[in-house]
């Protein structure tokens, strides 16, 4: 999953000072030559901060995204589906871990990033503030949300910052499994009993527009995008990626035997793309502003898990310290 390219509300921790003139020109050369910036390379402070913001938002999205799907682990309707879902939610935890590590290479600390999330100061993808009332939502999330994430993330495999690009290569492979699994869930439901078909259609009706909004506001309203594109962190605009996603969805929806809920959706031979209707951005903004059905619940859940686990983390540190002290003592005794 991926952030919404929302305006940042918190800057990352201060990195080192601006690079020297020679450092700056080597940075520019690498970017111009489509090369990779690595952790030890000099980089402009803005570039570093912008990356920390984007990568940590992305990591938080993976972690918060575990909840709407985790909601169905105990109720998955077959053992086969239960196993796939457990593995998927576990993959998302893994994605969060790789991404926090990538952000750490820029000088951010996992503890600070986590605290920002728990304090409600850090953003994560708004899509996870929508609820999963039915099993079909697990199919719709896999197909549409993981699907949109892939469209967003495949270009990030070529992002200019090496550790981020490498994390994305690994993550994208797994996301494409997730999308296929979501598609399969919907296909089985669509071809199942009338009640199951209805569940699938109803879930697609709810998730379609929010998944299109995952690409962020229209280009004209996306102030952060230009800079990210100049730095080759981002390579396609929000609207380009959204179009690509819609073009991919239409034939897949036909294969599923499900309807995409947009009366304006039609092939435009002139453009060679599907035209689609206006999205209701006021709803997107309301969810982004905290008024989605699950905004409060998602952060609260993470906060509770973190708080309930505090004694475990403290004990692990205390034990490690005791062990180190004992080893030191026995080493002294032996000397």
């Amino acid at each position: 999953m991926h952030g919404d390219h929302a305006p940042a509300t918190s800057a990352g921790p201060a990195g080192p000072a601006e690079p020297s003139a020679s450092g700056q020109s080597s940075f520019d050369r690498v970017i111009a030559g489509d090369g990779r910036i690595e952790p030890r390379d000099e980089m402009p402070d803005d570039y570093r901060k912008s990356l920390i913001r984007q990568i940590s938002q992305h990591a938080h999205s993976e972690i918060i995204g575990m909840q709407p799907e985790g909601n169905w682990i105990t109720r998955a309707p077959s053992l086969h589906r239960k196993a796939i879902l457990m593995a998927k939610v576990q993959d998302e935890a893994g994605h969060g871990l790789y991404l926090y590590s990538a952000a750490e290479t820029l000088g951010a600390s996992r503890e600070d990033m986590m605290q920002a999330l728990l304090a409600g100061k850090a953003r994560y993808s708004s899509i996870f503030n929508y609820p999963t009332p039915t099993w079909a939502d697990i199919g719709a999330i896999g197909w549409l949300v993981d699907g949109a994430a892939i469209c967003n993330q495949v270009p990030l495999c070529r992002a200019s910052y090496g550790p981020y690009a490498r994390a994305m290569i690994r993550i994208c492979k797994e996301e494409s499994f997730h999308q296929r699994q979501g598609f399969e869930i919907l296909l089985t439901l669509s071809r199942g009993t009338p009640a199951q078909h209805e569940l699938a259609q109803e879930a697609v009706n709810r998730w379609y527009a929010p998944s299109l909004m995952m690409f962020g506001p229209p280009d004209a309203d996306s102030p952060n995008s230009a800079k990210s594109m100049a730095w080759k962190i981002k390579r396609f605009s929000n609207d380009e990626l959204r179009q690509r996603f819609v073009d991919m969805l239409v034939p897949q929806a036909q294969a599923l035997g499900l309807t995409l809920p947009d009366p304006d959706l039609r092939w435009n031979a002139e453009r060679g793309h599907y035209d689609f209707g206006e999205l209701d951005w006021s709803e997107f903004k309301a969810v982004l502003a905290g008024q989605g059905q699950c905004n409060v619940q998602r952060v609260e859940h993470r906060r509770r898990a973190h708080t309930e686990g505090a004694w475990v983390r403290e004990a692990a540190m205390a034990h490690a310290a005791k062990k180190a002290a004992r080893q030191q003592q026995s080493a002294r005794g032996a000397a």
Binding site: I63, M66, G70, M86, V89, A305, E308, G309
Partner: peptide, 9 residues
């Protein structure tokens, strides 16, 4: 899952 004391767990 989603309730463990740390992500690794």
């Amino acid at each position: 899952i989603t309730n463990a004391p740390e992500l690794e767990e």
